[in-house]
């Protein structure tokens, strides 16, 4: 990999109590690229991306070993700040989860709790983030309407805009299109293509065609193991491992 490595995962293991959910995961994540995590349900994809912003800290009985370096700093180190980490590594979930507030407030909320009070500055952030999330033209005349009045696809783009508002480096997406129709899905995929100019995007998806369309790198996981990692073109044209081939061609899963 010739690109700048923004996250370096080294020999990561994770246990939920007695359940050994991730086994010796080692992989690089490139900056300003899209990396897809694919694999059957329960293989550890979501568990792995939750390690990147330490969301597993919130799970009782969860234990992690190994190292994850973000910009060269160990995110599990003694001086690491999970709150700051989650600001730099934002997350978008399977189901759109806007706050029950106005469209404007959904975006302004994060910057405000990080200390930005100036109205003009907040206005600029709201417009800029909605522009980046390709939502501005659709909502600019109703910024103070409830976010809950938006369609599912618009809500998901709002959640992406909300993530951008705190100026992250990485956007984690956990099956971001699984609740969306094909049109809304294609808008999110276009957005991912735009976002990677400025951000690193890591996406968990069950759609093989989505992984092949949007990502530069793909990791295939199975039963907590990283089976194969490589350029998406290589994984989908000529995977090196038979298990990968059998999964992506739908022979098991």
């Amino acid at each position: 990999m010739n690109e700048e490595i923004i996250i370096d995962v080294q020999d990561v293991n994770l246990w939920y109590g007695e359940n050994h959910a991730l086994h010796n995961i080692t992989m690089p994540i490139a900056n300003r690229k899209v990396t897809s995590l694919i694999g059957p349900s329960g293989c550890g994809k979501s568990t792995l991306i939750r390690c990147f912003n330490r969301m597993n800290d919130l799970v009782a009985g969860c234990r992690v070993s190994g190292n994850i370096y973000f910009h060269g700093e160990n995110i599990n180190g003694a001086d690491a700040d999970p709150v700051e980490l989650r600001r730099k590594i934002g997350m978008v979930f399977q189901k759109p989860n806007p706050f029950p507030k106005s469209i404007y407030e959904n975006i302004a909320y994060g910057p405000r709790i990080h200390g930005i009070k100036n109205k003009r500055e907040l206005d600029e952030i709201v417009e800029s983030c909605l522009q980046k999330a390709a939502l501005w033209e659709e909502v600019k005349d109703r910024l103070h309407d409830s976010a809950m009045s938006l369609s599912g696809g618009q809500q998901q783009r709002l959640c992406i805009a909300r993530t951008l508002a705190v100026n992250p480096d990485i956007i984690l997406m956990d099956e971001p299109c699984s609740a969306l129709d094909p049109i809304a899905t294609s808008k999110i995929e276009d957005l991912i293509e735009d976002l990677k100019r400025e951000y690193c995007v890591i996406i968990v998806t069950h759609s093989m065609s989505q992984a092949s369309r949007v990502s530069d790198y793909t990791a295939f996981m199975y039963l907590g193991d990283l089976i194969e990692f490589g350029e998406t073109r290589q994984i989908f044209e000529n995977p090196r491992k038979e298990l990968t081939e059998n999964y992506i061609t739908g022979r098991f899963g």
Binding site: M208, S209, S212, F236, E237, N238, P239, E245, I248, T249
Partner: peptide, 9 residues
């Protein structure tokens, strides 16, 4: 079917 890997090849 949008085949991939050996099916696509």
């Amino acid at each position: 079917y949008q085949p991939v890997a050996r099916d696509m090849r």
